Amino acid sequence: MRENRMRLRYTLSAATGALLLTTLLAPTASAGASVGSAKLLNSDLEAVRAEPDPTEPGGSTLLRATVVNHGPDTTGGPFTLTVRLPLGAEAEEPFFPDTCRLAILSSGHTVRCTFPRGLPANASVTADIPVRISPNAPVGDLEGGSTQATALLYDRNPSNNRAPFTLRVVEA
């Protein structure tokens, strides 16, 4: 008896998933369709490459992480901007906006910022993340940093949601 109930639950979950996928992968004529209060596939978020100022070992710099909505519509739901710092760098509070938080267990290398729905087409938001460079960091480029915009259901072009960046370490 228990096995049948589990099978029924799985079947309902698969049907719900298939319906959601059909909605998301439908031809562009259905772009802008609604699920709840969020419009689907109606905006295009892009993470813009950050270019923080160079700093010396043990110094600090400000990383300005920007996300642009290329539209055509206002964002239909909230989205997240994630900043991943390369090894040799740590984020230091305070962050702007105050919806930015250090990710749990990231050792200061990942900051997540949440933004509400309603970013108009052709507008942008920016998060300011102060970054401290390790005193032991070698002179040169610290590679492996990235910014990433994540929006569920309504970002019609996820190919431009991630942008790598480097932190340049210069002699003191």
Rank of each mutant, 00 (worst) to 15 (best):
E46P: 04
R117W: 00
D44Y: 13
V139Y: 09
A123W: 11
E92I: 14
L105F: 10
I129M: 08
H70M: 05
P78Q: 11
N160H: 08
L19G: 11
P78E: 07
L41K: 14
N160Y: 03
A149K: 02
P52Y: 13
T16N: 08
A31S: 13
A172H: 10
N160W: 02
T114G: 05
L62K: 09
R9V: 09
S107W: 15
G17P: 05
L40Q: 12
E92R: 15
L87G: 13
S60C: 02
A137S: 12
H70N: 03
F79P: 00
Y10R: 14
E90K: 15
T82I: 07
L40R: 12
T74M: 05
G144D: 04
T61G: 07
R5T: 01
R84W: 04
R2W: 03
S124V: 00
M1Q: 08
L63K: 12
S43N: 10
H70P: 02
G145E: 03
P57K: 06
D53C: 00
D98N: 15
A163W: 10
V48L: 10
R64Y: 12
G140I: 05
A103C: 07
L20I: 11
A89Q: 02
T61F: 14
V139K: 13
S106A: 06
L102N: 09
R162F: 02
L21T: 02
L142V: 00
A15D: 04
G59W: 12
L153N: 08
V170R: 13
E51N: 12
P27M: 06
L25N: 11
E56W: 10
T114E: 11
A151L: 15
H70I: 01
S13A: 15
Y154G: 14
T147H: 09
L12P: 00
R49Q: 14
F165A: 04
A14Y: 08
R2M: 01
T11V: 09
P116Q: 01
S34R: 13
A14L: 15
F79N: 00
L81K: 04
P27T: 06
F165Q: 09
R112H: 15
S30A: 14
A15P: 05
P138K: 14
P116I: 00
P120S: 08
V83G: 04
T126C: 03
V139C: 14
A103W: 14
L85I: 05
E51W: 08
L19D: 00
V68M: 13
F79A: 00
D141N: 13
G140N: 01
K39I: 02
S37A: 13
L21A: 09
S107E: 15
N4S: 10
P97I: 05
P116D: 00
R84K: 15
T22V: 11
E143M: 05
T16G: 15
E92W: 12
P130Q: 06
P130I: 04
E143I: 02
L119R: 00
S159H: 09
A47T: 01
G59S: 06
A149W: 02
T110K: 13
P164Y: 10
V170I: 08
Y10Q: 12
L40W: 06
D141V: 04
A26S: 14
G108D: 11
I104V: 14
P135N: 05
N4I: 06
V68Q: 10
I104S: 13
